[in-house]
Write a protein that binds this DNA or RNA. Structure first.
Lengths: 222, 222
DNA sequence: GTCTATAACCAGATAGAC
DNA sequence: GTCTATCTGGTTATAGAC
């Protein structure tokens, strides 16, 4: 009941602006989100928003930076626990699916800009690439750990690209139909088949050749 | 050398506006593309643009409609030729990859709006969904024909979703790095493994059980 | 740090001559 | 069908009191 001495009123306002901006920008995109909209939604006048962030680009950079930090914190650690490939993969996929469901902002922000490369401020472009690069590195390292691909970086890269592109595409689908989730069952089948196709060592699995798959390499092989 | 009697000057202007708008909107998104930009780029004054399309929404609808028609015309026909699954799948993937490479506008327009659902005009929303639905139907029918899934519509749906999401995600990646292509090799492995996982009949293939895959169903099965 | 008020500008859209 | 000129309203951003 202390009557709001509010030593940190500034920080709270800053967060409120950031929350509102993240919500609106991930819904309408950067260009279509105006300062007036943010102001009306969060209650603070435009001048306060400018006091905190300096410019519209500044808001965007701050929003994206926070989304990146939150998303990376929510993603599974690179060293997934599990004795064999199947266990690690299941743990990995469960956590990815969960992060995807609980952090709808992340990818939508990256997509919903409408200004990714051209005409944007250098800081905004840098943050966009920072965000994206962090995701790529995380995916490569995590999948490398899951499949034991320390000595096959190009395979880990392919699995990472595949996973991230499927996740991005699912984020696009969720844009059109809210409620769409990342389908981990087909992704699981696909990742196992891809690893087998490359004769991944499957270190820690029950057997060296266990991942080989007749379909991919045999009858229908390239 | 006929000195431009130009009986179809209107149609040519309309096309020029459409070309410019498609280029700009797929690059910057709908909201960030202004009438002035289109006017400056294509040479015609704003009033001419409004005479042809009535409103900014009208331009967007026309651009999207044309992109949809062009993309669908470029996609492989539903009935892919080929005696067995492998042949049909290869033909299918080759054409999809080609269409993806040669029609960079399509997906970027769908993504780069920043206004997909809310606040947009009813006509724009309808055209966006028309576009998307046409792609979904095409993918389901084509993959159903490739794998012989007439009696397994839910499997065809899953393969279609998988393929389209991977393609959408790749379109997003291409947004960041121009030159990115649709990787059909991993997609091929994944689709075969998914079909095998569902015990797809593989009608027209060399054998009924040929698609079964030890990895997906056996040791690591769910 | 937050507010009211407003400057400077550019957007989408229209009027009407030709 | 195309042009010049313009209206109205919203946009980013700032000034200055509190």
């Amino acid at each position: 009941m202390t009557q709001a001495p509010a030593p940190d009123r500034g920080a709270r306002s800053r967060d409120a602006i950031l929350d509102t901006a993240a919500e609106l920008m991930s819904r309408y995109g950067y260009a279509a989100t105006s300062i007036s909209m943010i102001s009306a939604e969060c209650g603070l006048p435009p001048s306060s928003i400018y006091w905190h962030f300096g410019s519209k680009d500044g808001i965007y950079v701050a929003v994206l930076e926070r989304a990146r930090i939150e998303l990376l914190a929510a993603l599974p650690p690179v060293e997934v626990p599990g004795a064999d490939v199947a266990q690690r993969l299941d743990a990995f996929l469960a956590e990815v699916e969960d992060a995807f469901r609980r952090h709808p902002h992340g990818l939508k922000l990256l997509l919903g800009l409408g200004m990714v490369q051209q005409d944007a401020s250098a800081a905004a472009v840098a943050e966009v690439h920072h965000y994206r690069d962090a995701l790529v590195v995380w995916a490569r390292d995590a999948l490398s750990a899951v499949f034991g691909l320390d000595d096959r970086p190009e395979v880990a890269d392919e699995l990472a690209r595949f996973t991230l592109r499927l996740a991005s595409g699912t984020a696009v689908a969720r844009w059109f139909e809210p409620g769409v989730v990342l389908e981990t069952r087909p992704l699981r089948v696909a990742l196992l088949a891809l690893a087998a196709h490359h004769n991944a060592p499957a270190r820690g699995s029950s057997g060296g050749g266990a991942l080989s798959c007749g379909v991919a390499d045999g009858e229908y092989g390239e």
